[in-house]
Amino acid sequence: MLQTFRNLQQALDDKPHILHLGRLFSETVLIEVDGAEYYLLFEKGHLVSVTEGPSRKTPWRFALRTDADALARFWKDLPEPGFHDVFGLVKTGRGRIDGDILSLVKNLRFFKEVLALPRATQGEGQ
């Protein structure tokens, strides 16, 4: 899972339009998968580091908590209903968003397109 998130760094840098969407986004996002923590540090849209937890010292702006099976289904090219969007995960009880939700919503298209990068469609579906 760590490598999957680290692969986002180059994938994101290869997508200028997504970088442009995130040009004002410099925050740390916690993604928790089956209890394992991954801290994604963004600076002006670039994903500059991905650090494994656990950590009680790393501040984060918002968090997505989910499980590996849900993410695998989310990353399918044509996901099933409920697994097609981060809010679908939340609505079906397979994900939870904590922290500064308004920060997420202000940068929602950016975050959704970053999170969808592992899809074969490279985020176009978001």
Binding site: V105, L108, K112, Q126
Partner: peptide
Amino acid sequence: MGAALVSA
């Protein structure tokens, strides 16, 4: 923001 939300 609305567009990003309804894309769900």
